[in-house]
Structures are given as structure tokens and as C-alpha cells.
Design a binder for these strands. Structure first.
Lengths: 258, 258
DNA sequence: ATAATATAGATATCTATACGTCTAGATGAT
DNA sequence: ATCATCTAGACGTATAGATATCTATATTAT
């Protein structure tokens, strides 16, 4: 479930009492509960009032309460036990860790200053591997953007992105020196391909001579290698990347559910 | 949403016409649609009949249809566009890749012969790090199980698991030589702590002398290092592990959503 | 031609109600 | 005491509406 902007709107309406119109009831209920959990008003492990009680308290029907709590269950903040009740989970696992973000969003979230310099920017034929990942024919063109990325002025990642030229040809119309790598995904969205999902393969490797030279590290240093395909809402692959991360500077945290 | 056994039951009832009782309508609808997508009867990118039409066709109410399709949307097989319709996604991203599995389940799924030999089995005091991860006091005991794991007779992983002794003391009652590492999680479940979620931090490292010796690899070889905390349904941490995977033999695939 | 407007169809939200199923605890029989 | 049974409460499933909102398309006005 995706409800980023709804969260913001509803949170807004917590401090600012005005303008609660237009926000669905189940979103208000969800965020009210989320806030009660965050503030400790609802303690960890505690049983919530029954769905009937909550429905009465919020002045809505039971199904609406369930719609709100279901979202929080997906987020891992609540869990239900059939015939018993709905409870607040103990240590509130941060679901955010499993949310798809790009380098810049992630850096911003953690107060890190991110910067990218473009090393290459070209239109090339898709290699077999790239064509397969992006569901392209072998002779089709892709835009290749190679960037070197810094977090707080430390070089951490060499990044090779490949984008279907057929879908995003306007991208290359922009003037190069100031090309905005940071908001590539919003360009996808504007063209009707909002980023929805990514599948990434992660490996541990060693830096070879070439990579070591570019990233100013020693050959043989550990590299967290990531191969990622990014998909839009409708399942269209919009971006394929090779990603070489400095092993001593970069770690990846993911949350998995059963 | 968790519905493993429901899937099996509903699929059963596809081939075997009997015994569709007890299976919720929305599960039948969900699996019917899933099967139609898998078989290609519903083509990729295609628009589904409207919710009203589906409701009529299946002879249920519209809300029940939505309950079924919502599950498939969470799985990434469908997506909705407000005011337009519900569609089949293009390349069916395998949601399974982001599902929490253990080494043995994962091996079985891929037809790999998995084996584990126990190197150490002891009860020790929790270290600060382990205590923090498992929400224990510093003087509490944990069960430490160190195993060496093979996939198709190749050594791939050195695995250090730490389990709260307070919760799972019976585990150490079993006779050691045949201790069943494979079904540790079902032991958790039997004690009322079904495994639900895991948070794992992934890094690229180099094998040191000690690790190289145990795993029969070269010192300085790439290691995919994983630090994982496993949580039960109610958020109780049930297992903390250090996991050293051979970089050249092991890769990790995860799916992230936005 | 272009822009504003109306409309039909589809999903989004929500209600009120009903019955099913599960769990924990009380009750009662052995 | 122990075990089976009953029961109240809570979540699970399902219905049949109603209204809101969004999108694409057709229509109309400029």
C-alpha cells in the first residue's frame, strides 16, 4: 500500500485542526493510532480496544476501523490474533528500511550530504543482459549514465544506470553539465511511469584495478555489488543499474516478511 | 498478508473439485485470478473486467472482489488506476524474493541440497550487542549455535545464531549429535512465537585468517556479511545471527517497494 | 482549432448488518 | 484434580447498498 502523501496530509491535520476535509476517515484513524503508538499513549504489547469499541469511539463503522488498522498491520506496528484482539507490536520494526529509495532520498533521510558527478552520458545499444532486464530488443537504444557518488564528500559508489531511450528520450535533451541525476525518478513519473518496485541482486566482490583507480581505493578492497532493475507501477522496467559500493563505507539494511 | 496454507487449499480445490467448503470466497477469487494470470488467460497489461462485472460473474459482492484483488495487488500481480480500471502488471515481479526464508527453505525451493554441521553449541551470557538486538538484560543467557552450511556439498556459509535461553530453554534438552537446526523456526512457532519478520544489515567484507581456515577459502576473499535479527509475530526478537557467506558462491536477491 | 464543460464508467470510501470461527475462561461432570 | 462443554467476546468473512472522486471521452462554446 502506498500512502506517502496521505500521511503528510493527515499529520498536518493533527497539529493544524483545519482542513481535515478530503482526508479519508480510515487514514485519519490510521494516523491517529500511529501517533498514539509513537507517543507511547498506546504501549507496546498492549491490546487495542476491540474493533467495535474503536468504531464507536471514532464514530465510524467497523469496516472503516479495519481498513485503518490493516495498514498498520502491513507496516508491522500492529498484529491481530483471531478471537483475541489487536495488539501493538513490541519493538516497532522500521518498515522504512524495506522501502525503495534512491541514493539521494536515502541520504536526505539520514542527514547526509549527497553529491553525484557525471562521468559518462551516452546513448548506446542495449547489451543482451540490459535488453533482457529492460524487456527491450537487442538493437534498441538505452541511455547510459555513469556517475560517481559522494556521501559527505566521501566517494562511496560508482553507479551505472541504463534507461530505455524509447520511453525517456527527452532526458537527453537537457544540457549536460547541469543534468539533474537526483530527480530522475520524478522524470519517469511525469512520463506516466511512477517508480513502484525494484528487484536487486546483491553480491560481495573485490575491487579490480580499474574500479580502484576511479574510486580511489585499493585493488582487492571489498565491494558491495548491486544489480538492480527498477519497475514502474504497471510493471514496465524503467531503469537497470550496476552499483559498486565501497564495502567499508556502505551497508544495506532490508526488512523481510514471512 | 500471510496466506500460504490458504493458497495450497484453494489450489487443491482447482484440480480436485471437492472440498471447496471452508475456503473463503475472496481466497477462491484471488486464486482463480492468479491462475488465470499464470496461464496467460489474462494477458499482461490487460484490463480486468470492472469490479462490478467481476462481482456479478463470481456471484459475490463488490467488496469481496476487492478483498481478493487487493491481495494480488500486494503481490505485485495487479495494479489499480483510480477511475480507470484494474490491470495485470507486465513482467510479474516475483514477490517471493522478498519473503523471509531460512537457508534450508531457500535451498529446497531451488532444488539445492542443503546440509549443516554444528561446530559449537553452548549457553553463554549475551554480549552487549546481542543483548540489545534480542532485548535482553546483559546478564541473561543465550543459546549459541555455530554451524557450517553446505549447498550441494560446497561450503558457503558460516552461521552464528543466538537465541534467548529464557524463551527457548527446551531447545538445549535435545541430544546434540542429531540436533535439528533445520526446523529451529518451527520450534519457535510451537512455543507461541511464529517467525514473522527479519531486519538484516548486509555488508561486503574480506575473509580474515580464521574465517578462511574454517571455510577453506583464501584470506582476503570476498565475504557477504549479514547481521540479522528475526522477530516473531508480536515483535519479540527470537534470533540474532551473524552470517558469513562466500562472496563467489552466494548472492542475495531482494524486492523493494515504494 | 482550442478550451471549457458535461458525462459515463471505474475505482475509492463508507455504512449498517449478519453470521462464522476462534480463543480464553467459566462452568460442570467425572 | 482433570477433562469436556459452554459461553462471551473478538476478529474473519460477506452482503447490499450509497456517495465521492477520478479519468477518459464526447460535446459544446469560444
Amino acid at each position: 500500500m502506498i500512502y506517502g502523501h496521505q500521511i503528510r496530509s493527515a499529520l498536518m491535520s493533527m497539529s493544524d485542526i483545519s482542513n481535515t476535509e478530503g482526508i479519508p476517515l480510515y487514514v485519519k484513524i490510521r494516523e491517529s493510532l500511529r501517533q498514539q503508538i509513537a507517543s507511547g499513549e498506546l504501549e507496546r504489547g498492549q491490546k487495542l480496544p476491540s474493533e467495535d469499541e474503536l468504531a464507536t469511539k471514532f464514530g465510524v463503522s467497523r469496516m472503516t476501523v479495519r481498513q485503518g488498522t490493516s495498514d498498520l498491520i502491513d507496516d508491522g506496528l500492529l498484529y491481530r490474533r483471531h478471537g483475541v484482539g489487536t495488539f501493538v507490536t513490541l519493538p516497532h520494526i522500521e518498515r522504512d528500511h524495506s522501502r525503495l529509495t534512491n541514493f539521494f532520498e536515502n541520504s536526505n533521510m539520514h542527514g547526509i550530504h549527497a553529491k553525484a558527478s557525471i562521468l559518462e552520458f551516452e546513448v548506446i545499444h542495449a547489451t543482451p543482459k540490459i535488453a533482457q532486464a529492460l524487456l527491450l530488443e537487442l538493437d534498441e537504444f538505452v541511455i547510459h549514465i555513469k556517475t560517481l557518488r559522494q556521501a559527505d564528500d566521501v566517494m562511496v559508489t560508482l553507479h551505472d544506470a541504463y534507461i530505455p531511450h524509447r520511453l525517456f528520450s527527452e532526458v537527453i535533451q537537457e544540457e549536460l553539465p547541469d543534468f539533474d541525476v537526483q530527480h530522475l525518478w520524478s522524470k519517469f513519473e511525469k512520463k506516466g511511469y511512477p517508480v513502484k518496485q525494484a528487484v536487486q541482486k546483491i553480491e560481495a566482490r573485490l575491487a579490480d584495478q580499474e574500479l580502484a583507480k576511479v574510486m580511489h581505493i585499493q585493488a582487492g578492497a571489498p565491494i558491495l555489488f548491486k544489480e538492480r532493475t527498477v519497475y514502474a507501477e504497471d510493471g514496465t522496467p524503467v531503469e537497470f543499474t550496476y552499483c559498486f559500493n565501497r564495502g567499508d563505507m556502505y551497508s544495506l539494511t532490508v526488512t523481510l516478511n514471512r
